[in-house]
Nucleic acid binder design. Structure first.
Length: 859
RNA sequence: GCCGGGAUGGCGGAAUCGGUAGACGCAGCGGACUCAAAAUCCGCCGGUGGAAACACUGUGAGAGUUCGAGUCUCUCUCCCGGCACCA
């Protein structure tokens, strides 16, 4: 056996051996329990980043662990290959996005192979290829037929200079990122998917999922089911009704105004002959469309001069236009109840509208001076005519019925969740398979004309969608009437691609969207990915799965049985700020770091000798220049070190802070492991310990060994916490190397211990473990090994140590026989020297004995 | 603004169901080996007082529940993720 640990040599050798026998290829096998372990597919941005390494190291460790426990494990990989960055790169390089994307895929695939993940590459899916996205189009058409897809207008960010729609990401401080022009809101037609009709099921089935509770809660809140009422306010001229939705219809008698969105028909009507209103509506158009922006902007309004009639009191209420009312939510109008809604309260104060309390709260006095949080709590109705004295909940139920009887509304459930707008005015995406005909309207592309192929040779220029300028793409004949027509040039949201890729892995060559192989592998037993996907991606994929189920394409309800949301990978941020250039970032490896006496970073110096500010830890990103290239780590230390570091640095669901020294430490541990095995093997391999008398020292070591097997298995399988599993193995090896016994039995125990360690560490560092195993057991391979069994005899302990507390403070310890009774323990504790010293003559009130843990004497 | 999460030594983190706070690793300090360095090995390592035994104190801040709180409850501060066209 070679004395030096040479990852560059062993990793290549081990990987070619895997490749030669297609070790990670899997097929459907009814004789074994299946385990579908999926990591979120990467966007091919150019290089892998540490977040990918982390994500796939976790997935690989779980996959390998489950395989050792007798499961038929599928771990596939693919590429989320459509999207905005490819278009940006295309503009920059003046090359089509396709080339950039395929080059990146080739490079990143090489990186994934070098990291040694047990991926079945025969199932690779690339979402920008027609054999994948044709099924996006095919399902879209099925949804159109079922009425799940429909068309309506939507508000988007509009850059008036480039005449183009901007992504939220492209709006910086209310301005277009390339032009600097103030962004406007603009309405355009879009295709929508009716995710809201699945809202109830999407909430209800969260319950059966093995997901982190916070993620389930976030989804539930996102869907945001609210039980309330629709209320109709007839127009003063009797020409129609203004519909509003309220979750607090019990406050109806407190309504002193109604507010409509600037895009609402009433607002438009009022502005017709009113230039001030027109100016206000124009002003409301300024700025972007994100909820964060709308929620933090100043609440502004303007009176329209129009009135509507209160449905119960017949009072005339003024109609205002308000910038905080969203046209896309509910009816685009709200009733203003200043006394019990914080936003309405401040609005009423600002515009001098009446504030009438209609809910009383026991023991509290209402004052219209300042807002108090309890104003919006439930209570008992007052100032509400026949309903006075009714508790909120009862009133809420009753009022819906009353309104329905008057034909002025009724009970209604709404959701915060909005239908999924999938149209994008972009080139690099799945073409939407629709044709617009002057006589026939929106006509679906017939199935036999699928896929609508995206031309791969266009280069976008930043002003609008190149597809809309490509005559050969959009010019077509109407499939219905045969007259000249125009093909839809919008493409689909890339969330469509990631909503079902995991099903395509099951049968990547199928001539249909999915086949019976999906029934074998799905649903996914373990899904792993970034916490940033906790809502949108996961929700869309769940919705898409339910649609496929309703179309009888699959038989399961939910795609992801268990979910692990991994934290981000962070690194130091260094920057300079200047008036002229704004913020300039510096890569951490290029600055001289300053530390205070405690080792804390205080700042840095650049290569020019000028000071640089320290910005703490932040996510690794291209813009902040603080990314660490995994390739550099692999080249210098090997894949096993890179994997060990990311797994050891913190638990999977927390963020990892990058540390060069930590990588060094991971490498040192592997080198040490190599040396320990080398020294053992050099003295000759022996048969592993199977039984017989052992010294107390060896018994203790075996006890620790078997406790470690148990713990590591539990950490991998149940807790999915790898850092503590690695720590436990480190501890075991620390104690092992303290052993100086060279007897026959000690060598047998050493053999058992080292064989076991190579097996239980192999899910995390498979290359070194595969190599070490071959040295420890020549002629056999690690690949054939099962997860080691815990020897229950080794777990038996004759004595245990208890802690003694007096009044909850640690005062000593006690070694007692494992079989000692509660009374024995208490007696021993009472007579303990430290206890006598601390208790003295004070009478003992109580003795708490926690078996196997501690004794607490309370005085 | 709203929803969710987090805060523990110089640093990353451990403490799994309310029961010994700081496992394991990094950095640092001391020593061995070496002509020397690197590597490796051994030891120390929250703070204060103490020669030591030991005592007190300590898990973002403030209160509370409990024999016992890093862990549970309430209030607050700061940081991170998401907010529907980044993926």
């Amino acid at each position: 056996m070679q004395e030096q640990y040479r990852p560059d040599q062993i990793e290549k050798a081990v990987q070619s051996e895997w490749e030669a026998r297609a070790a990670h290829r899997v097929t459907e096998d009814a004789s074994k329990p299946k385990y579908y372990c999926l990591s979120m597919l990467p966007y091919p941005s150019g290089k892998l980043h540490m977040g990918h390494v982390r994500n796939y190291s976790i997935g690989d460790a779980l996959s390998r662990y489950l395989a050792m426990n007798g499961h038929n494990v599928l771990q596939p990989m693919g590429w989320d290959a459509f999207g905005l960055p490819a278009e940006n790169a295309a503009m920059k390089n003046n090359l089509p996005p396709a080339k950039w994307t395929y080059d990146n895929i080739a490079h990143m695939k090489g990186q994934l192979k070098a990291l040694g993940f047990a991926l079945d590459w025969s199932r690779e899916v690339t979402t920008c290829k027609p054999d994948y996205y044709r099924w996006n189009q095919w399902l879209f058409l099925r949804m159109w037929e079922k009425g799940i897809v429909y068309r309506k207008s939507a508000v988007v960010n509009w850059d008036p200079v480039d005449q183009t729609v901007l992504a939220n990401e492209q709006v910086i401080d209310g301005r277009g990122w390339r032009t600097g022009a103030t962004v406007e809101k603009r309405e355009i037609p879009m295709y929508y998917m009716k995710i809201t009709s699945y809202a109830d099921e999407l909430i209800a089935q969260l319950e059966k999922l093995g997901w982190p509770e916070p993620v389930k809660l976030m989804q539930k809140n996102w869907i945001g089911k609210s039980d309330g009422a629709e209320i109709h306010f007839p127009y003063e001229d009797g020409s129609g009704v203004l519909k509003v939705f309220s979750t607090r219809p019990d406050t109806i008698y407190g309504a002193s105004f109604v507010a409509v969105a600037p895009e609402h028909v009433l607002a438009q009507k009022a502005a017709q002959n009113n230039s001030a209103l027109q100016a206000f509506i124009e002003e409301c158009k300024k700025g972007g469309v994100t909820e964060a922006e709308l929620a933090t902007q100043e609440k502004k309004g303007m009176d329209t001069g129009l009135f509507v009639t209160h449905p119960l009191t017949q009072q005339q209420l003024p109609v205002l236009i308000a910038n905080y009312v969203l046209i896309g939510y509910g009816e685009g109008a709200v009733m203003g109840v200043p006394a019990h809604d914080e936003r309405d309260f401040h609005f009423a104060k600002k515009y001098n509208l009446p504030i009438l309390p209609v809910v009383a709260h026991a023991g509290k006095t209402y004052s219209t001076d300042t807002w108090q949080d309890w104003y919006s709590d439930e209570g008992v109705a007052i100032n509400s005519h026949d309903f006075d004295g009714k508790p909120t909940a009862e009133f809420k139920k009753k009022i819906g019925v009353v309104l329905a009887a008057l034909n002025l509304g009724g009970p209604r459930i709404t959701y915060r969740l909005r239908d999924w707008g999938i149209s994008r005015q972009r080139y690099w995406g799945t073409p939407i398979p629709m044709i617009h005909c002057e006589s026939c309207g929106d006509v679906p592309v017939p199935d036999d004309q699928l896929p609508v192929v995206l031309p791969e040779n266009l280069v976008p220029d930043g002003s609008g969608n190149p597809l809309a300028k490509t005559v050969s793409f959009f010019q077509c004949d109407c499939p219905k009437c045969g007259k000249p027509a125009r093909r839809e040039t919008d493409t689909m949201d890339t969330f469509v691609d990631s909503s079902w890729y995991f099903m395509r892995y099951c049968s990547p060559d199928a001539k249909t969207m999915v086949d019976e192989r999906a029934e074998y592998w799905m649903p996914i037993d373990q899904y792993i990915g970034g916490i940033e996907h906790a809502i949108l991606h996961l929700l869309y994929a769940r919705f898409w799965t339910k649609v496929m189920r309703d179309l009888k394409l699959v038989s399961f309800d939910e795609p992801f049985t268990n979910l692990l949301t991994q934290g981000m990978v962070l690194n130091h941020i260094f920057f300079r700020k200047s008036e002229k250039a704004g913020i300039t970032y510096f890569p951490p490896e290029e600055v001289q770091i300053h530390r205070d006496d405690n080792g804390r970073i205080t700042g840095a110096t650049g290569s020019d000798g000028q000071p640089i500010e320290y910005g703490g830890f932040g996510t690794m990103s291209k813009s902040k220049l603080n990314g660490v290239d995994p390739q550099a780590i692999v080249d210098q230390y090997g894949a096993d070190t890179a994997r060990l570091f990311v797994m050891f640095a913190s638990p999977p669901d927390q963020s990892v802070e990058w540390s060069d020294a930590g990588v060094e430490g991971a490498f040192r541990f592997l080198r040490r492991l190599w040396k320990i095995v080398h020294d053992h093997v050099s003295a000759g391999v022996v048969a592993r310990y199977t039984g017989g008398e052992l010294s107390a020292e060896l018994k203790t070591l075996r006890n620790q060994l078997h406790r470690t097997i148990d713990k590591v298995g539990d950490d991998y399988g149940r807790r999915k916490q790898f850092n503590t599993a690695i720590a436990a193995v480190m501890e075991l090896l620390n104690n092992f190397t303290k052993l100086s016994d060279t007897s026959q039995s000690a060598r047998a125990v050493a053999q058992e211990l080292l064989e076991t360690v190579t097996v239980i560490l192999s899910p995390i560092v498979p290359h070194i473990c595969t190599t070490l195993w071959s040295e420890l057991r020549p002629g056999t391979t690690l690949a054939d090994q099962q997860w080691p069994k815990v020897d229950s005899a080794a777990l038996q302990q004759d004595e245990i140590e208890l802690v003694i507390q007096v009044n909850g403070k640690l005062r000593g310890s006690l070694t007692v026989p494992a079989k000692a009774t509660r009374e024995d323990v208490e007696e021993l504790a009472r007579n303990n020297e430290a206890v006598i010293r601390h208790v003295g003559d004070t009478p003992i009130k109580k003795v708490v004995v926690v078996p196997g843990r501690l004794v607490n004497i309370v005085v």
